[in-house]
Nucleic acid binder design. Structure first.
Length: 422
RNA sequence: GGAGAGGUGGCCGAGUGGUCUAAGGCGCACGCCUGGAAAGCGUGUAUCCGUCAAAAGCGGAUCAAGGGUUCGAAUCCCUUUCUCUCCGCCA
């Protein structure tokens, strides 16, 4: 959620910056300003009315104590009047607040000044590229064929047991998954992140806090019987640990990492995008989350991108970093870097990580604050990134490292897999 | 799932209709005292909204959440929720 103060003071600036997202917010911002004004006027009227009623009650109390109850009658009537008007004012106030709130939740985060304009993935800026793109022979296999050939993944079994997008990993395939998770968690802990095991289902408040609701309602699996959502990423439960907290300034930055299974409905996806491991309904991911001082969040963002890069370098995978354009930027994010690995048999770049700074957008909803050295309670900044999502990375590892004799396992993973090749 | 007991400030805990503007304690901060520290003494110590250029001040809200009764609710009533104890089920 944006800060209402910002709209109050500089609504033009808000409209201008939202244009980078290709959103024309002029009308909605105008309406928000009106509602905000109306709400404040009504609040004042209500407060004054309540104050008067309070005074009368006190006088009634005094009269009763002095045994002059009879004299209280006219005051009681006056109080009834005030009660009536305060009730009306309260309703008016609630109406202002709820519409205001609704409109505020419709506005996405303002893009950071460095965010380029543009509509789609094609407009994202490639910031850097690392490693060498391998040239495979004509007989190179895509990962879904390798997975079948070496009995690493049983897509058909998954379809039978659940449906498409729910693969069954087995043998060395399963072991490789576990190895990657262990490697990522160990690396994160070495880099100062605290390991967390979060719940995999969350309530609506949590889904709202990090911005999944109401914007991405249809993308989450919903468990109606208990009114809970399966998490699309551990960002949701981990960040919500800090909901409604006021941290001490010296507790910042908070750095957490979590492995979790992630569930996404991915409604509307089709074609080559969903082939093999490219897009799944269930997948494994290690996430890193930071809560920082507002002045330190972009430093933290760079650090997180550098950290994720270091993982990909250790795994010897070619990758590139893209700065998302306004049209591709997530609802709650001010600035996002996507990390894409090269999948040599598919000859495609696949997103394996998305590292974002949400500034105060999430913390506003979460009421996540810290007590600053000036004694004021300020909203903290929140950030998160995948470090990393497994399936597409696995696809690249299998494809890029295939040889006539089998598939080589990167050196850093061997202590976790217990084997050097598949 | 069934029965019962509860939810009060950072924490413990008093408070069953009107000076609650929430006692008292612990913790924390600052000051005094001290060679320094502890102890002791003193002062202060929630959040949100509004008003204000801002701060102070002032007004309002908040005793799990929502609704109700009443001139007046932490206190009485209803609903929801969470915690604890016992029973049942169970990895």
């Amino acid at each position: 959620m944006l800060d209402i103060q910002l709209i109050r003071e500089n609504s033009q600036e808000v409209v201008r910056r939202l244009k980078i997202r290709n959103i024309d917010a002029a009308e909605i911002v105008e309406r928000i300003s009106e509602l905000d004004k109306g709400r404040r006027i009504t609040q004042k009227q209500l407060d004054d009315t309540l104050a008067e009623a309070k005074g009368i009650s006190a006088r009634v109390g005094d009269l009763f104590r002095e045994g002059r109850a009879g004299e209280a009658e006219p005051l009681k009537e006056q109080s009834a009047e005030l009660k009536k008007s305060s009730r009306e004012l309260q309703e008016k106030l609630d109406a202002f607040s709820s519409e205001l709130n609704e409109l505020m939740t419709q506005l996405p985060m303002l893009p950071h000044p460095s965010v380029p304009g543009g509509n789609t993935e094609a407009d994202n800026q490639i910031v850097s590229q690392h490693g060498t793109v391998p040239i495979l022979g004509d007989d190179a296999l895509p990962h879904w064929e390798l997975a079948t050939k070496y009995e690493l993944i049983d897509f058909k079994a998954g379809t039978k047991v659940t449906g498409s997008g729910f693969p069954v990993y087995k043998g060395k395939g399963a072991r490789l998954q576990r190895a990657l998770v262990s490697f990522f968690l160990d690396e994160a802990v070495k880099n100062g992140y605290t390991e967390i095991q979060p719940p995999l289902l969350v309530n609506a408040d949590s889904a709202f806090g990090t911005g999944q609701l109401p914007d991405k309602d249809g993308q989450m699996y919903y468990v109606g019987a208990d009114d809970l959502y399966l998490i699309p990423t551990s960002e949701v439960p981990v960040t919500n640990i800090f909901r409604d907290l006021i941290l001490k300034e010296n507790e910042l930055p908070v750095k957490c990492t979590a492995y979790s299974v992630c569930f996404r409905r991915e409604a509307g996806s089709y074609g080559k995008d969903v082939k093999g491991l490219n897009r799944l309904h269930q997948f494994d991911k290690v996430e890193i989350v930071q809560v920082t001082h507002p002045e330190k969040s972009y430093e933290a963002l760079d650090e997180m991108v550098a950290y994720v890069s270091s993982l990909l370098k250790k795994l010897e995978v070619p990758f590139r970093v893209a700065r998302l354009c306004g049209g591709d930027l997530g609802f709650a994010s001010a600035l996002t870097y996507d990390m894409e690995v090269y999948s040599a048999a598919q000859k495609r770049w696949l997103e394996v990580s998305s590292v974002s700074n949400f500034e105060t957008y999430q913390s506003h909803r979460l009421k996540l604050r810290f007590r600053s050295s000036t004694g004021k309670n300020l909203l903290a900044h929140t950030l998160n990134g995948s470090a990393l999502a497994l399936p597409r990375l696995l696809a690249a590892l299998l494809e890029n490292n295939q040889t006539a004799d089998g598939i080589k396992i990167p050196g850093v993973l061997r202590q976790y897999t217990g084997f050097e090749a598949i």
